[in-house]
Design a protein around this nucleic acid. Structure first.
Lengths: 170, 170
DNA sequence: AATAATATGTCAGTGTTGTTGACATTCCAA
DNA sequence: TTGGAATGTCAACAACACTGACATATTATT
């Protein structure tokens, strides 16, 4: 496998990238994303939930007390779509929905103990694969991995990402 | 941003990875994948196609003459699901469906000129973002990016990936 | 030659997740 | 008091996945 050393740059100092190299990256994203979701998906089918429920649980866990609107723009779906998911999670006692104190229109979302439990189970499954991949690839690869992913994000979503990851942990 | 230099390894020589670091990677995958599909998606809605059509076109372009069964296991969907997509693509004159010579049960799939044209348009949109991200991140980051993604794949899908990318282009 | 297995296609039904559009409620702010 | 923002809900719809059942060639096996 060609190491980072033989970086090919053209006269303008830009990386020279063939369509083949780019296609390879595209396919890597496709196949890797399937692995990325495979483990939590297995847990979700048991509980009769879907990937949307996982995403909601994840980001509520990540920002306890977040509002519906904030979650909406993080997930990038319509409120109707999110509401369907939230309704079941609240109904099943996994998510808490509290009227705002300052602004009573807002609903602050947080996880119940049961919600935290499921979120943990899903996250553990996903992190296990992530950890294995990270260790297999090494620290420098992980750094590159995050760098490229960040460069692929839409600026609007990048904001949410930066806010959540809060700077420089890698 | 912490560089690859300060890799933290424990007494066993393994990377020390906090849950925070792993969560960051998980969120990077989530947000980046949305950027990854955003550009082709915009073209697809115009043509009234979906992501599934894009995937089919991509992998047929990648392996012209491939069989339905092979495409099936590459995409990891059921034949009913793939068939729905293929039917429209063949009906719209984007994909060619030819009876096998050696084995007449098989159907060999390939793109027509019109199919190649759409596939190119979709791929160009996706590659543009990929190229920009690659250049922004640099050659070493790209190498790490691919390495981690490959380590995240299910072994079964990794086989398809290896077969398609054929070894060591990066 | 009869039978089994393979490759493909199709029909019907179902579920998740996304979309629009419309409408009601509550509440903050000018 | 009025306008607009935040939220919730209803209905309808579409894309895309699934299962299960069944049909049709074709090839492989016995």
């Amino acid at each position: 496998m060609a190491q980072g050393q033989n970086r090919s740059e053209n006269t303008h100092g830009l990386l020279f990238l063939t369509d083949e190299q780019l296609r390879k990256g595209i396919e890597a994203m496709f196949f890797a994303y399937r692995g990325f979701t495979a483990d939590p998906d297995r847990i979700l089918v048991e509980k009769s939930y879907g990937r949307a429920h996982h995403r909601a649980l994840h980001f509520i866990q990540r920002s306890p007390g977040t509002t519906v609107n904030n979650l909406l723009s993080t997930l990038g779906v319509t409120k109707q779509s999110l509401n369907r998911v939230l309704r079941t999670l609240i109904g099943d006692g996994l998510v808490l929905n509290e009227v705002g104190i300052k602004d009573k229109r807002q609903r602050h979302l947080s996880l119940t103990d049961a919600g935290r439990e499921l979120e943990q189970a899903l996250s553990n499954a996903q992190r296990d694969r992530m950890r294995t991949a990270y260790r297999q690839a090494g620290a420098e690869a992980v750094y590159g991995f995050c760098t490229v992913l960040e460069a692929m994000m839409d600026p609007e979503l990048k904001k949410h990402y930066d806010q959540l990851t809060g700077g420089d942990i890698v």
